[in-house]
Every structure is written in structure tokens, then in C-alpha cells.
Amino acid sequence: MKKNTNLLKLIIAIVLVLGISVMQHTPSAVAEIPMQQDGPANRIYIDVTYDPVTQTYSLGGFSSAELEQYGAPGFTPELWQVLASLDSITLKLENEQFNLVTDEEQLASIAWDASSRQILYGMLDAYIELGRVDLDRAEAWLDKADIEFSLRNSKELSDPLLIQLATLLQVNIDDDNGAVNVEGIPTGFGLTPEIQEMIRAANLNNIKLCWNKGVIDSEINGSTLPQLTLYEGGINVVDRAFGLSLGDLGPIFDSTFGAGIVFGEGDPVTGECLP
């Protein structure tokens, strides 16, 4: 009898120890997203190299042939005439300064603080009518932006494209005709009636989509979907299997950006993609 009592005590002790330890450990398969310290920062670096002799150009690490394959337009003869007389042009927007440098000589420097931007928006609105472009959205993009656009007279391949956008691109799909607007600007693209019908049937209000160097995080109607990681090697296999001729995807796999897609009058997508 005493032996049995001891055995029972042992089992109860094991159950208690296991129960407490299970409660103290909360397993999770979701990787922790590092919190960004300084708010959103949008970095864009676009390098273009051009050769006036062959009248070809390379952009963002893509060769002239690749750009042609993607349907990129060629430069006009007038533009080639201007470019042929220059060695380089760099437009750089950094912190609160906007600089224009040609042939390593500073050509202009404009203050780029909030009040200067307001003056610029006023001028733009007066001349080209900004229309549906939301000035708050423009500020969300341009505040803490670091943008460099470089044009170089060189036969070399351009530097890879750098896109690191913390601010979500606001995409709106019109409920009636499926027209796609990005940041309030019509793109000319639209969803087919079949896809619109599918979206209605699935009761989709909004989608948050974040691409961070191959890692795709997404939310549908606020519910998180599994995290998908694409590797360049994997995309190359798909490319070879189906003959897609995707070319060099390195710049895309070095980029970070995201979009908040809203269907009709669905709730707007908030937050940002944290690189």
C-alpha cells in the first residue's frame, strides 16, 4: 500500500512539473520582426549608364538587351543630343537638401524641409494640377526620403537598383470597373470581371503585402497568412522550367517594398513594412 502511495506521489509530481513547464514555454514558429527605431525611411537609388555612340542605356543593373526585352522605351534623339554633351548628372535628395550635380560640379541646391516642400506642392498644383494626389501621402513618401538618381556616360553596366521603401504603396481597386489606382493615380490597368467576382465572393476588403528581400509577409482582411520566402535559385528553376526569360533578379531580391491594396470602399491598410 505504501509502495502504491509513493508511486502515485511520483506521478502527481511529474504531472505538476510538466504542467508548469508547459505553461512557462509558449512555442511560436513566427520569426520576430525587428522593430524599426527611427520611423519609416524610403531609400531609392537608380543608376543609369548610357553610351551615345551605340545609343543604348543600362538601368538599375539591367543591360540594354534586358531592358529592351522588358519593353523599356528608348531615348529620343533630342535627349541623346543633350546626354552626349554631358559626362554625368546626379539628382540627390538627402535629409533636407536636394542637390543637382553635373560633371562633378554642383549646379543647384534646394532646401527640402517641410515648408519648402509645401511651396513646391503649391507650385506644382498651380501648374500641373496635382488633382487626386493626396499631399499627406506625398509627405508620407518624401519625409525621411533618401533618393538618388544618377545618369553616367559610360559603357559599363549600371549599378544595381536599390529600393527600400518602408511606406506602403496605397493601391485602390475600383468596385465598379476594377480600375487600379496607385496613390490616387489611375494606372490604366484593371482587373477582369472574373477576378472582381472572385474578390466579391471571397469578401476581400483589403490586402497588406510586404516584400523584404525575398520574404513575403501578407495579411488579408487583417488576418495573417503564412510567411513565404522565395529564393533566387528557386525562381531561376521556375524560369528554366517554363522558359520565362526573367533575366537577373538580383536587384529585386535586394529590395524592400510593400503595398496596401484596398478593394472598393474597404478599410484602408495601415502600418508599414518593416525592413
Binding site: 511560436s28 514558429a29 513566427v30 520569426a31 488576418s223 495573417t224 497568412l225 503564412p226 510567411q227 513565404l228 520566402t229 522565395l230 529564393y231 535559385g233 528557386g234 528553376v237
Partner: peptide, 13 residues
């Protein structure tokens, strides 16, 4: 060589 990876939880599934 990694081609594709999917991380899930019962909720996301």
C-alpha cells in the same frame, strides 16, 4: 539549395 520556404502557424493555415 533552398528554393522556397513557407512558415506557418495553425492560425495562418
Amino acid at each position: 539549395e533552398e528554393l522556397v520556404k513557407l512558415n506557418f502557424t495553425p492560425q495562418t493555415l
